[in-house]
């Protein structure tokens, strides 16, 4: 839904269940026309969707986020100031149907954490 329009995955580094996604945001995506007019900031929910699409990319499965246990939005992401992001996730495939992911979105040097995420997906 948002991959290749709202964001691009530039690179993926895998280390067992720990995956690092190098992300580039598209500051001219239409969502910024409304969020907010004249003051573009990333909608938190778009970044949750971005995490889901990264997990889909890694697992190769279409997923449904049925339980977002906890998601903290610690800092606002502005696409013009923070076009490059890192998403680091620990992705666990429990039984082939349930996938658990835990991790965070940070700036490229890892000094600012924007979002902490813990959620559970079902395969479609």
């Amino acid at each position: 839904m948002l991959k290749d329009s709202y964001f691009n995955i530039l690179d993926m580094e895998k280390n067992d269940n720990d995956i690092l996604f190098h992300i580039e945001l598209n500051p001219s995506h239409k969502v910024y026309e409304g969020h907010f007019p004249g003051m573009p900031v990333c909608p938190g929910v778009c970044n949750v969707e971005m995490i889901k699409e990264c997990v889909q990319e890694h697992t190769g499965k279409r997923l449904f986020l049925n339980n977002l246990s906890q998601c903290k939005f610690s800092a606002v992401i502005t696409p013009t100031y923070n076009p490059l992001l890192l998403i680091s996730l620990n992705i666990e495939n429990i039984d082939g149907e349930t996938i658990k992911a835990k991790g965070k979105i940070t700036d490229p040097d890892g000094s600012t954490t924007f979002i902490d995420f813990k959620g559970e997906f079902q395969t479609k």
Binding site: F36, G44, V45, V48, F64, L65, N66, N67, L68, S69, Q70, C71, K72, F73, V76
Partner: peptide, 16 residues
């Protein structure tokens, strides 16, 4: 006022 989501917890989706 402008509101930002600070945290979402126990978001359970039964069906879309």
């Amino acid at each position: 006022p402008i509101g930002y989501i600070g945290e979402v917890k126990k978001f359970k989706i039964t069906r879309l």
